[in-house]
């Protein structure tokens, strides 16, 4: 049967056991683990394994996924004890015959491997992740040199997968902590020369559960699938906040370029 199902995809290299945490808050009293035997081919990811289980063994298993190529950030989970994107984790590269899969930590569970990311999005929203300007309507392009963009470029790669918040030990104990993702995005916009929103973000970033609660364990940077370094952003943010104690941090805000009209002639 296994051979038949997978024959179009190449030879089955080995069979591994998936130990998946199952929990439906509406039905179950407590989480439990269930094991599934999954035939593995070269190039098969953990997400492929989960989808194999869902299609052929247990239809009730729930997981969130979308792009299958490490872009959307939907399939974050804890695989063999470490936060990873299931679509970017090759089963054979794990080098184990037993693959333990848990939903991300520090979130409520919707069902099985599906976390409730409301906290992540709420924190992200709280740091106002957009360019804040004085004028109501931009009159032209906001000018920026490549060097100015370089100051925050790395932090624009965040895909909001939420793995960093799952790995963060402070988030585990302090449910009001903003978390590495939101703090990194806070820095990303403060460091942007087009932005003028430092004062508006200060109440959130410089709060009791903001930037100062980081213990610098570095787990967030360790697990980020896009190579973003939120721990660095937090330290840079602290540098800005500390400087602001003595000298008020002032954003100049870049000048706008010449007024332009769109190709269609509508400004």
């Amino acid at each position: 049967m296994e051979q038949l199902i997978l024959k179009d995809f190449g030879e089955v290299v080995k069979t591994v056991t998936f130990r998946v945490r199952r929990y439906d808050p509406e039905k179950d009293d407590a989480p439990r683990y269930e094991e599934y035997r999954v035939p593995v081919q070269k190039g098969m990811t953990v997400l492929d394994g989960i989808l194999y289980i869902k299609e052929h063994i247990d239809h009730t298993l729930s997981a969130r996924y979308s792009c299958r190529m490490g872009i959307c950030g939907s399939c974050g989970m804890i695989i063999n004890g470490k936060e990873r994107l299931a679509c970017q984790t090759q089963i054979l590269e794990l080098g184990k015959d037993l693959i333990k899969v848990d939903p991300m930590g520090n979130y409520e569970v919707v069902k099985d491997l599906v976390p409730d990311l409301s906290k992540l999005f709420r924190n992200h929203q709280n740091v106002k992740p957009f360019i804040i300007r004085d004028e109501e309507e931009p009159k032209g392009e906001y000018l920026q040199t490549p060097g100015q963009r370089e100051r925050y470029a790395m932090f624009t790669d965040c895909i909001l997968c939420g793995l960093c918040l799952s790995a963060c030990p402070t988030s585990a104990s302090d449910e009001l902590y903003l978390g590495p993702q939101a703090l990194a995005q806070g820095f990303r916009y403060i460091a942007d020369n087009r932005d003028l929103g430092f004062e508006e973000r200060l109440n959130v970033l410089d709060s009791k559960h903001g930037v100062w609660r980081c213990h610098f364990s570095g787990a967030c940077s360790e697990v980020c699938p896009k190579g973003v370094d939120p721990a660095l952003a937090i330290q840079l943010l602290r540098q800005v906040m500390t400087t602001n104690v003595f000298v008020r941090f002032k954003q100049k805000g870049t000048e706008t370029g010449p007024e332009r009209k769109s190709v269609s002639g509508v400004s």
């Binding site: 302090d174 902590y177 009791k208």
Partner: peptide
């Protein structure tokens, strides 16, 4: 700082 992490928010904090 330690206690506000363990018991965050509200009147307790």
């Amino acid at each position: 700082v330690i206690l506000s992490e363990i018991i965050p928010g509200g009147r307790a904090e």
